[in-house]
Design a protein around this nucleic acid. Structure first.
Lengths: 144, 144
DNA sequence: GTAAATTTGCAACAATGTTGCAAAATAAAA
DNA sequence: TTTTATTTTGCAACATTGTTGCAAATTTAC
């Protein structure tokens, strides 16, 4: 994954590409996403960071990242909202979120299965599909 | 769909099958589900009913219906939780939620496409799938 | 280094979800 | 049908989560 220094550089690059100021909070939140290798929900940021972020700042930062296509949301059946890093093909104007999500019932982690494409769905006549979200739940590799 | 009388009878039947007391609130909430032909979220109940339910009662009623397999949740990317009626094959111990959900971007409605099966997903090695949720968003029949 | 623009943190608020408990409604028993 | 036991409801109080305005601090551009 590279040295601390390299990661910080990479993060600064991502932010500049999206025309965002490189701030401490944004850098730390992106770091958490890179380290976590899974989806994070709002409450994770205040815990994981060790230090405490301001709640409002986290909300605003996540919204900004969403707007710029740096992260995407993952559907859940509860009230939590989960976010994950987008791959490089995503941009502010075009989201290629063509992978499925896997939620492990053991460890609770949600991860993006980037190699697994979402299937074609044959809808009834009269329906037009713009986006397909797939969330599989079960037991993940590590918990098996 | 039958007369008001018939519907009330059918609802009472559903409740008794699940060993639940037949109460006014439960009956009205099930009526709303049957009328709506789509998914409902919590705030809908207080609005749709004309009268106002107690918030706590609605929460508890929905939780009870979930436990008994009368309704199921639908994943969303926001903090709202959406519920829809289960078909007859569902029970307290076994959920056959093998249909996909469609969310219309025009009217905002979410409906169950009961005829459309959930596709088989080929997961990477080491992952075991227990449940697959599919939510398609786009434009529905009525809004086209 | 200074000025302009952006971001942050606080305070205050709004919305949503939860728990305990007494009153009311429903079901079961007599 | 009336009485008793069980379940459900509604209220109050609280906890959690998300939002907005604005002044202070930070970052960027000059």
């Amino acid at each position: 994954m590279g040295t601390k220094q390299q990661i910080t550089e990479r993060i600064a690059g991502i932010l500049r590409e999206s025309k965002l100021s490189v701030t401490e909070t944004r850098t730390k939140i992106l770091e958490l996403f890179m380290k976590s290798n899974g989806a994070l929900e709002h409450s994770d940021f205040e815990k994981l960071a060790g230090q405490s972020f301001d709640r409002v700042t986290v909300y605003r930062t996540l919204q900004t990242f969403l707007d710029k296509g740096i992260i995407h949301k993952i559907p859940t059946t509860d009230t939590s909202v989960r976010y994950a890093l987008c791959k490089s093909e995503c941009s502010e104007h075009h989201h290629h979120d063509h992978h499925i999500h896997f939620k492990c019932e053991e460890c609770g982690n949600t991860i993006c299965l980037d190699e697994t494409d979402v299937p074609q769905i044959q809808l009834p006549k009269g329906y037009a599909a713009h986006n397909v979200e797939v969330v599989v739940s079960g037991v993940c590799k590590s918990c098996k």
